[in-house]
Design a protein around this nucleic acid. Structure first.
Lengths: 359, 359
DNA sequence: ACAAGTCTTGAGAACGCTCTCAAGATCAGT
DNA sequence: ACTGATCTTGAGAGCGTTCTCAAGACTTGT
């Protein structure tokens, strides 16, 4: 006789332990004012029965849903998605987010939102109504999407914006783009470079501006000029090709390029190859993001590591810690690091320049 | 006066439309036996009020949770994870899964399970109790994990196993590994190769066996021997290096290698380089998986494309279509394709062999 | 026109949990 | 001991939905 496995409810535990529902609930939620003996008795019953509270029921009665919603970009079609360059953004995000959520008894759900859609508000609104998440994590390019932040603010759902330095509504978490760019630039300067170009990201992203600032600050501190050494791309491969060509055309004496994305750096690498410039012998290259692909290029790229998992993890913690009334905005920085590989080296000797420094 | 935005419930809609809760519920769920006029009236109210049913409440009362749980592998720590080779497995999975789920009014949740943990049963059991998913999707290496499949079977939760050909319990979805390997081998044979080696995956995976079968079948059909042309790896880079070296040592006249993972193919590429073999001129290479990284190697690799997104999408559809009593097991194949890039070409001319065929 | 169905609608219980509030038990201060 | 405060426990309502079941409206066949 195959007994149908009935779900173990809080009621079963209460009966087993000989206490009221309420007491079990208190034990489960770590509520105060429960005598140790009671607590132990209930805990024993919970273990014996293998009780786990139903998320849905918790949401129904309580004020929390124990759900954090992560909003990601969605490309239009499967084909487009496949054609993308490989980043492990989502992998990273999930790892950081899911683990941290589960540590706090929360769950993470992922929503794919199409930037170009004009139903964004309706779609997202529906999701929010259905899920009623306790917090939302916005990832680029949605982190600074006014429509979305306004919607969340209106519904009073706490949210974190990843990769945004703008001190707008919600919690902003960033890798400290100014500092990261400064770090990359300083690294090159320490190697002896003095003509260091920057391929920045699109200006709509405030982080692009910050990276430019960091680069300029390091250059200025070393007494180096940065005129004509800046190009703007859109993070994509083609734009990187264009930018690298323009940079090299304008500055034949260029010895290093910092690219604001792995894809643009890879493009710059290809441009160097097509011009017969050896990397890193003739040209040093540093990229931003440190997605897995840059470890398999020839040569592997030195890169600023974007600590996505950790950033998302921090975001989750903030969201959970603050709770429903966490309306205090904040900007949090998670330090980025420089991963040295084989695309950076001392610059080539130049006529009239000593090996040890600049003229 | 800032009105606190109250959630719109089915009751609000009922009042607005002047009908009972039940009628609204019927309209929402497309139930039968509702007069068209009623239906329209209710629909109008729903739109006006922007009503969306609460997932949690639906789960509470109904028999379904509208949740599909996807179980993925988790590396032990963040550090390990970062050190991994970049695949976009999770990205792909999410895309296929989430979109298909939302088309059917479902939601996908992701659970990270550590293969090496001995708490698997407890952890997974807790998740199942908390979420009560309507279906579960197992991805490698969990697809053939007896502990997990037994647990799911016991709880009578329908599940799909991705990347498993074994006709065990649940729905098995595979890319048709035998056919895919046959396809790759045939492609090389058509180019004129006759010494085609295979670096297979670990034998614990039934798909490894199938790929070997496909390769042998194609070789046999062309009257080619396959002795000493097989090596087994573990899908990882290092094992690929070992296998490629062994293969090349044993068979100096080798002209093509099929590797059962991108990572092993990349390793083979590096081995070829270290031995002065030009790819594809001296050695042709085909990999399995077609993760983004193989497009950025030198040269970009010809690869068997693993249609992950589509497979997961199919899995979701199956799970939803079959419903809670979908106990009929099945094996479903989603055809893989060959993506031609620059790592395959005609074999080099050999003394005593005409350009048009074998001796 | 009447019985026997079939459609359409609604009332009320139930799902598993947390919240609010009240009652009894325990404790401190006199 | 006695009063008032604090701890501990439990009873009962309520969350938003679907389920079951019954009642009324409408068919159909004769």
């Amino acid at each position: 006789m195959a007994r149908v496995r009935k779900t173990v409810t809080i009621r079963d535990v209460a009966e087993d332990a000989g206490v009221s529902l309420q007491t079990v609930s208190r034990v489960v939620n770590g509520g105060p004012n429960v005598r140790p003996e009671m607590r132990d008795k209930v805990r024993a019953s919970i273990d014996r029965l293998g009780y786990v509270p139903s998320l849905a029921a918790q949401r129904m009665s309580g004020s929390r849903s124990y759900i954090i919603l992560a909003i990601n970009d969605r490309e239009r079609t499967l084909a487009d998605w496949r054609a993308r360059l490989g980043t492990d953004w989502v992998d990273q995000m999930l790892l950081g987010g899911i683990l941290t959520c589960s540590q706090h008894g929360y769950r993470m759900m992922v929503e794919l939102v199409d930037t170009h859609s004009d139903h964004v508000e309706r779609e997202l609104g529906a999701t929010l109504s259905a899920l009623q998440p306790d917090g939302v994590i916005l990832t680029p390019p949605h982190s600074e999407n006014q429509l979305i932040t306004a919607l969340l603010a209106e519904r009073k759902i706490p949210f974190a914006r990843i990769g945004s330095n703008a001190p707008g509504p919600g919690i902003a978490l960033t890798m400290g783009d100014e500092g990261a760019a400064h770090l990359a630039t300083s690294h090159l300067i320490a190697l002896g470079h003095d003509r260091i170009a920057m391929i920045a990201g699109p200006t709509q992203y405030s982080l692009s501006g910050w990276r430019i600032e960091g680069w300029k600050r390091a250059m200025a501190a070393a007494g180096l000029p940065h005129d004509s050494l800046l190009e703007v791309g859109d993070f994509g491969y083609e734009s990187g090709t264009r930018a690298a060509r323009a940079l090299l055309d304008r500055n034949p004496d260029l010895t290093a390029i910092i690219a604001s994305s792995d894809q643009m750096a890879l493009a710059a690498l290809e441009v160097a190859r097509e011009r017969g410039l050896a990397v890193p012998h003739d040209l040093s290259l540093i990229s931003f993001d440190n997605t897995p692909i840059v470890r398999f290029s020839q040569p592997p790229l030195t890169a600023i590591d974007q600590p996505i998992a950790e950033t998302v993890s921090r975001a989750v913690e903030q969201l959970i810690a603050r709770g429903p009334d966490g309306d205090a905005d904040a900007v949090i920085e998670v330090a980025a690091g420089l991963v040295e590989r084989s695309s950076t080296a001392r610059p080539p000797a130049r006529p009239g320049v000593t090996a040890s420094g600049r003229a």
